[in-house]
Amino acid sequence: MTDWHAAYRERYKKLKEAGKPFFPYAVLKDTLVAALILCVLSYLAWHFGAGLEELADPTDTTYNPRPEWYFLFLFQALKFFPGTLEAVAATLLPGLGMLILILLPFIDRGPARHPLDRPFWTILGVATLAGIGWLTWAGYRSPLTNPVVEKDPVTLQGQRLYRDLNCSYCHILGGKGGQLGPNLDKVLGNHDDAWLTKHFRDPQALSPGTGMPKLDLLDDEIHALVAYLDSLGSGPYSAEAPKLFAENCAACHTIHGKGGDTGPDLSLIGSARDKAFMRNYIADPSKMNQASSMPGFSGQLTDHQIEDLARYLSSLR
């Protein structure tokens, strides 16, 4: 098994003696490559800089993180593993890959070195590369799991106000905040827009004895805050909503095991998308995701019905 080791050592020694000194032959090439890389990086740094998005907002549940490009293939690969399998695959796939890499010299141990003399490993390498390339491309093309959510500017303004007014000092939203006031994650759906508007204008008038201070907000600001809170809470849906789903959506979508499998499973969609997203998506998917083959329902369902459906779907989490 190891008789070729001595032969290799002998052959390598001869090659080395017949070879060239590291300096200047290799050093020259290394320097040229380093200079080229420095030029490319300087150009990129000078012209594009490094982006900086808005300040991190832990209460923003609608942000869709897109993985760095070199992790894209992994996220795309995970889509092949449904449900709980995905969690296992997320750690097993990279783990297995690393294990194979580490053990590689002990699996492939013959004397053959030329790629054409190791057809299995060469094909495996090329296939893996092609697979990663294809997955990266598919992940780049597919907005399905990571559509860029166009946020309503009014909602955005409300979100900023929520932060600037330090509402989280007393209220919990998105699992974060103080406990002096009601937990907004729990009570948001209980009140309508009119109540919220009055509440922001004069809390005492609506609920005497409340610890909520009067904030002296402008009408525009109140409107923005209400829009923001609306975008978070799903609100109550009618008993008709599940029927609407069964009639219009279940041919393609599944909820808790019932329905078709042409479209994505929506059993937990509420934890990934907010109500506003779903309302817009149901009305006209092509605006949110050009690759979608789902028809728009703005002609078939009334706005009221779409709102009802969106509330129902965002309650699924």
Partner: peptide, 24 residues
């Protein structure tokens, strides 16, 4: 620096610069 290395001819020789490029 003065150690000898086996000669690599043609474009293949440039592949050997990848390690030092990473170091750079």
């Amino acid at each position: 620096m003065a150690r000898h290395i086996p000669e690599a001819r043609g474009p293949v020789a440039w592949f050997y610069a990848l390690g030092s490029a990473t170091l750079f």
